[in-house]
Nucleic acid binder design. Structure first.
Lengths: 199, 199
DNA sequence: GCAAATTAATGATTTATTCAAG
DNA sequence: CTTGAATAAATCATTAATTTGC
């Protein structure tokens, strides 16, 4: 392939440095006007289009998050193997039956005073956990498979027919493989591409 | 930090996933019986109490709404940053934030009326992605030095005046409207590494 | 040293999900 | 109930790094 007909943008070191500096400064998903300016200034250092800037931030953010997610999963899995579920654990710890009153009062006894709790949000998106086999089907409360359990919960939660969302089959529990389905090696479909791009 | 010394609940990935699945399925404010059951099942995966479940739903719902609200406000506000200092390269072209969608909207302009067109996915693999000319930048003439320019970009990107540098430990305020507060790894660049000057 | 072969990074696309407006 | 807008996740595809045999 001729170098003049490169099919995708190849950032120059200066462009990359500036993009990373912007990212480091907090920009994650720039909008149209920002993309426009960034593109204009980065074009001083080489050929670039707005879509390149857009894609760069998308990918960088996603892969940053992916990295962090993987790190956290590893940490959490190595930290505590979570002993229990031995005997009568199906007794939950002391739910005062006035919990429903919280819904009315909406004032927790220990007020979370405005600050943002980070922990759930950090790892709040999809990820594929790896459940050791000893956690699979042992406890008496796990007789129901979790999909069924979830369905029953949703059933209770939605007595009125307001949410008929199809509830696409999300894999809550990976079946057997201890594979965190990342690192997808792209040896799957390597058919040759068309020879002459119309550039 | 050891989990035994942790003063607050730290959800395991399994717990978090199940909670999010329940949330996605429509549960927003579970009542006492639901909380009880959810807690019972989640306790298979780690230490948890009913109040954790309760608070999780409260917080998740609130932050979901907050995120949406801020996103909408932001994207409305970012339509007018055009009265900055000097803008002789400002083009009236409107770059939407979703560049990728333009492949759908743009390339098959329905040449044949009255016939169902072939689904774009069928032919999209060998499609030569060329952004229409209205997205292409003209050669910029702005010569602001990159530091000042970067600051202005960050200014736009950060409506909150409190964070203009990466906080290493904990970030209480979201920098952009829609991001999840993950921390970045600064060493992702292979071509250049910036020695983090602003400290 | 060098290319061919292989692997890792990353740019570019597609798909799915969300909320809310119509 | 449908659709629009936005974007995150997943995937595809190409380039760069690197490994390997010579």
């Amino acid at each position: 392939m001729s170098p003049s007909t490169s099919s995708r943008w190849c950032p120059t070191p200066e462009q990359l440095m500036i993009l990373e500096e912007l990212y480091r400064s907090g920009i994650r998903t720039p909008h149209a006007s920002q993309i426009q300016r960034i593109t204009a200034h980065l074009s001083l250092y080489g050929k670039i289009e707005g879509k390149n800037v857009f894609y760069w931030f998308q990918n960088h953010k996603a892969r940053d998050r992916q990295k962090l997610r993987r790190k956290l999963i590893k940490q959490l899995q190595q930290q505590q193997p979570y002993h229990h579920h031995h005997h009568h654990l199906e007794q939950p710890q002391h739910i005062p039956s006035n919990y429903h009153l919280f819904n009315y009062f909406d004032h927790p006894p220990t007020p979370i005073s405005g600050e943002i709790e980070v922990a759930p949000q950090v790892i709040s998106h999809n990820w594929k956990p790896e459940i050791p086999s000893r956690f699979k089907m042992e406890s008496p409360t796990m007789r129901m498979c979790s999909h069924d359990w979830m369905m029953s919960m949703v059933d209770i939660g939605l007595p009125s027919p307001c949410c008929n969302r199809p509830l696409k089959t999300l894999e809550l529990f990976p079946m057997t493989a201890t594979n965190v389905k990342e690192e997808h090696t792209n040896t799957s479909s390597k058919h040759l591409s068309l020879p002459t791009p119309t550039n």
